[in-house]
Design a protein around this nucleic acid. Structure first.
Lengths: 156, 156
DNA sequence: AGTGAAAATTCCTGGCA
DNA sequence: TGCCAGGAATTTTCACT
């Protein structure tokens, strides 16, 4: 079977570079070079290629919510009135800082939202005061994540 | 109102450092220093403090699934037989590379899973061949993300 | 694609205000 | 806390293979 002809071809060395940077984005290029066994300059140009291809879309440092006192993670299914445009609802959801993800989904809900909060009372406040007050939001269904056991990116 | 006495106190400079690194984890310290208006050494010791406090739990480069051909994102609610231990189920879910998140949730489902796949056929395969074949999994409910409009970390 | 070398930049530590 | 200074390390580019 022929490989799909995307704009990038990734070999074993690229994979090693990616795996290392997915684990720690601040790993020095020279350290990767030593790990992989080729020169720093080579790693450098491979990295540029990977960035240019869009495979690496950026990097970020990860903030631990819990250290900030955000101990609750929840998913919220949102039912929208058919007169409410999804995009307008999303625009208003964006203004709620605790909303981290918002998906337009197939199935029973119009929108599906991931929310963090400090505790259950805070979550209730976000639901009642912030989300349900958006005009066009009919009702919501909430699922609290009691424990997150897997959290990762796709494996390379 | 008194601020909660957590183990860290974060001032405006810390926030600027964090915001920059959340946007690009590879930003040089000296660039942040110029941005903020204090010396690199000061940024350096603040960063160490932030890492030590656990607020910064790491960094990672972000891979764009779509460039790898993973075009579908879905959420799957999993119903487990009461004889099946959640932890065993999670152990088996971990072996499915397309499973990126797994939560133990309140509500109707035992587990709630985020999955990426190349297309709908691939998603069906993951559901039928990988997830439903786990012993103890009774049935699943799937919600496909047709479009993700918000994806961010908590704002500092 | 990879290498080695060189220049610019950055990291990081210690001493001091 | 923050700043400065300077040696070590890293990034980045370039000519060559």
């Amino acid at each position: 079977m022929k490989a799909k002809n995307l704009s990038i071809t990734i070999d074993g060395i690229d994979k090693k570079i990616l795996r290392k940077l997915m684990e720690d984005a601040r790993t020095p290029i020279l350290e990767i070079a030593r790990l992989v066994g080729i020169s720093g300059a080579a790693i450098h140009q491979r990295l540029k290629k990977l960035e240019k291809s869009g495979l690496i879309s950026g990097s970020q440092c990860i903030i631990d919510h819990k250290v900030l006192g955000y101990n609750t993670l929840a998913f919220v299914g949102v039912y929208l009135d058919k007169t409410m445009s999804h995009l307008d609802a999303v625009k208003l959801l964006k203004r709620i800082p605790e909303v981290l993800e918002c998906h337009f989904t197939s199935g029973q809900w119009s929108l599906f939202v991931k929310v963090v909060s400090k505790n259950n009372a805070h979550l209730m406040h976000i639901l009642n005061e912030d989300i349900l007050t958006i005009s066009g939001v009919l009702r919501t269904e909430t699922f609290v994540s009691l424990d997150q056991q897997i959290d990762r990116q796709i494996q390379i």
